[in-house]
């Protein structure tokens, strides 16, 4: 799908929020792709780290906060450690997760879980499940 670029979109409240929360110079990314090359789970992501950086630069945020990739990220910090421009890419992931949480996007409906499931899943897992995976249902 075509991206329509304009000043407002490039400086939207989403973009501002990501820049502020991550404290990263997002625009300095030159798309070398080293973050993705080193990411241990990039293979499983629907949006890989460098693609995510690019979409933030282009103001295409909605696709990112509904992506699975931001929840697959394990915050191992490989991306940030290796970035030649010193961008802590994992912090951008974290900012996207925070935005997703604030949007209140829940994937798990707790009412539908059985007693056995509630017994078996650790509490942290249930909370994570609100956001992460439809597959928990």
């Amino acid at each position: 799908m075509k991206i329509i670029l304009d000043k407002e979109k490039l400086n939207s409240s989403y973009v501002q929020a990501i820049k502020e929360m991550s404290m990263q110079k997002v625009m300095s990314c030159y798309q070398c792709g080293k973050c993705t090359a080193g990411c241990p789970i990039a293979d499983f992501m629907d949006v890989v780290p460098n693609e995510m950086m690019r979409l933030v630069m282009l103001g295409e945020i909605e696709k990112l906060i509904s992506s699975k990739a931001i929840w697959l990220c394990t915050s191992c910090f490989q991306c940030g450690t290796r970035c030649p421009k010193g961008i802590e890419v994992h912090r951008v992931f974290e900012a996207l997760r925070s935005i997703a949480l604030r949007e209140g996007k829940n994937y798990t409906n707790i009412e539908k879980l059985s007693e056995e499931q509630l017994e078996a899943i650790p509490q942290q897992g249930i909370i994570a499940g609100f956001r992460k995976f439809e597959s928990l249902e």
């Binding site: 799908m1 075509k2 991206i3 329509i4 670029l5 304009d6 798309q31 693609e51 690019r54 979409l55 282009l58 295409e60």
Partner: peptide
């Protein structure tokens, strides 16, 4: 086009 994201781009 933005070949980095693989998307066509339009700017007014």
């Amino acid at each position: 086009v933005d070949t980095l994201s693989g998307r066509k781009v339009e700017i007014k």
